[in-house]
Design a protein around this nucleic acid. Structure first.
Lengths: 210, 210, 210, 210
DNA sequence: CATGAATGAGACTTCATTCAT
DNA sequence: AATGAATGAAGTCTCATTCAT
């Protein structure tokens, strides 16, 4: 569950950071095109702009690249989400804001999100746990917004299980925008999608004015 | 978009059927454990109970096995779903029945469903289209139940986009039961899950008695 | 050096003959198209009109087919050559007749001759010896015609080595018509070729009238 | 018809040259023993002194080795022939020199020549065309010597078709020394062979003093 | 630190041959 | 005598990883 330490032969921490950023950027591009398994280490090195030998100065195995990519994607998602959620609202408004932000971020990072959900399963067990934990943290964030809204809501409040499932529904609705894109992005724009999902998902928490 | 014809050197159609069933059964087990890419053709043959030479009497390439597996899973899902939906109800009851049945089938076929959603992307383009089409058919089935319920409902009816997205939400809620199992199956049983999701997903179509 | 006995599980000698003729005919067609090594036993069986199991009732190994084919071709070449040489001439006329007949047969059996010269090397040693012996017999036939002509000639006779080489030159001239066809058949017709080669090859035995 | 570019993963052009020379040398030895089809890529690598992985750093496919071998043989034949033909003679002497040189080279490179004539047919079409073109160039060289001799000759000159066929006869006589070696090398030494063939092949261009 | 040539295990696939029916 | 499904050795080629320079 710990942040896994990816081994490197290089001492200079700053250089490691730079090289890994290059690496991740190239790898995302390649994984997007052909998936993790069909991408070779040589291709990764080339796309990153260095040699295969150098690649192995900064990672221990091919799987490390996948871990680096997944970790970086989650980090980025969190960063962006936090940025969107900077101004602190509360209750129902907060929840709507969370949904809108989540969807926005999912839209901005479509390719990365797709990679996460399609390739994470290839991570070694330990790395997978770590990534799943991060995902759980995000769900918890959503859930806490749900809880707040529920408590403040004008309707009979949801019980804990219901809140947990609703939080998951919201998360999945965000992911749906990318992994069912062929259907859902043909039907509407992101803002329409956000509006409709807010209505559908939150109707158990609201009474619409007639 | 056509059902792809997987080539075989064997003439006896019935034998082909038998062997492919053995093959699919073994492959599902292996894919479940290690994924498609990490499973070798030899392992597939062995698990199915025949030699590598025999394997290639019944398929043209490794990818054909994945196609066979995906196709068979969808076929099975449809068959089971149709069986569950035999008795014809209507309106809101019908929709609740569709949801319950869908979730039931997803629960029964957890491993298979997981494989579908994780490996389908590795299918060659054409086969992928075919599989996506099958998935779209199922979504359409759900959507028609939504439409019926919406029209009969006591609340302001949903517009077409809303109905489409709701149908997708329902489909995804079914899949969630398997691919977020570590979260959601820890929180509740299938029947609880079904009850909660019915409430949450359908609240936009119902007014709960106070 | 003996005519090799190709093993068969079948008793009926007549049937063996029939099946092997079918087999040879099909094999010649296939070898012509793709060579011996690139032709599979399955293809041979199919082209011959029976199953792979039946094929192995009439031969012991794939190489046997090649032997059968080569043997049959030589047999055919000899038969045709003998037919052409039926009317007995003598001396120079005989030699000219031998050349013309040889070339004629080579022309008629181009594909077969090509196969012989390209695939014979793949025969097992023993079979190869046998085939080479047949070829040596034909060369001997030519050589004897050369000898006769030389003795009867109006010019200083050739010594034995010269005669042997001349005989080989004549044989090779016949084969050239097929295996250098892209050059030589573009330059002239068979009868022109025969005339020219007779002049060139036999000029050491003749004095042309001035 | 272009010189085909055989792909390599290695950048150092000089190293490519070295490794390919090792490869060709080993391959010639193996092809000599068992032919192209019966030689495995592993054997090639081993004989060349490196691993199978390294082999594929320097070629794209097994067929590339055959092409490399054939190309190299022709190159070598040409180089040697040109060396032999350095001193410029003319007319009949030139033609005799060409024949002697050709035969000499064929004798020196017996194994290689045999490979060329037995395996070239297995080259992919394009490579085959390229090799045939090289062979045509050599024939043209011979033909031009024939033409010169014919024009200078004391006898009625040959017409173009006759000259072309004579050139082919000379080429084939050279090849005969290797591919009918079991007959012809038993009968005489190379210098005897050269003398006899010069007499036989060129008698149409000369009048021998009595 | 960077490079890239070398390695070899192991992947997929073919196909000659057998043998029960 | 005919069939064709089954077999598995063996072939070609890939690619993650190492290590000398």
């Amino acid at each position: 569950m710990q942040k896994k330490k990816v081994p490197s032969m290089v001492k200079d921490e700053q250089l490691i950071q730079i090289r890994r950023e290059q690496l991740i950027k190239g790898a995302v591009k390649l994984f997007k095109e052909k998936g993790f398994h069909r991408t070779t280490t040589r291709e990764m090195a080339k796309e990153a702009g260095f040699s295969i030998g150098t690649l192995y100065e900064y990672i221990g195995s091919k799987e490390d690249v996948l871990y680096l990519v997944c970790d970086s994607i989650y980090e980025e998602v969190r960063t962006r989400l936090d940025a969107h959620l900077a101004k602190n609202e509360a209750g129902m408004d907060r929840l709507r804001q969370v949904i809108a932000s989540l969807f926005k971020v999912m839209d901005e990072m479509q390719d990365e999100v797709l990679i996460m959900y399609q390739e994470a399963k290839s991570l070694p067990k330990e790395s997978l746990s770590y990534v799943l934990k991060k995902e759980a943290e995000m769900t918890a964030l959503v859930e806490s917004a749900v809880r707040e809204a529920s408590e403040q809501g004008s309707i009979a409040p949801l019980d804990p299980t219901e809140m947990e499932i609703l939080a998951n529904n919201i998360m999945v609705a965000g992911q749906m925008w990318t992994f069912r894109r062929w259907t859902v992005q043909k039907a509407c724009t992101l803002s329409e999608y956000t509006a409709v999902q807010s209505k559908l998902l939150l109707s158990s928490l609201t009474v619409e004015a007639k």
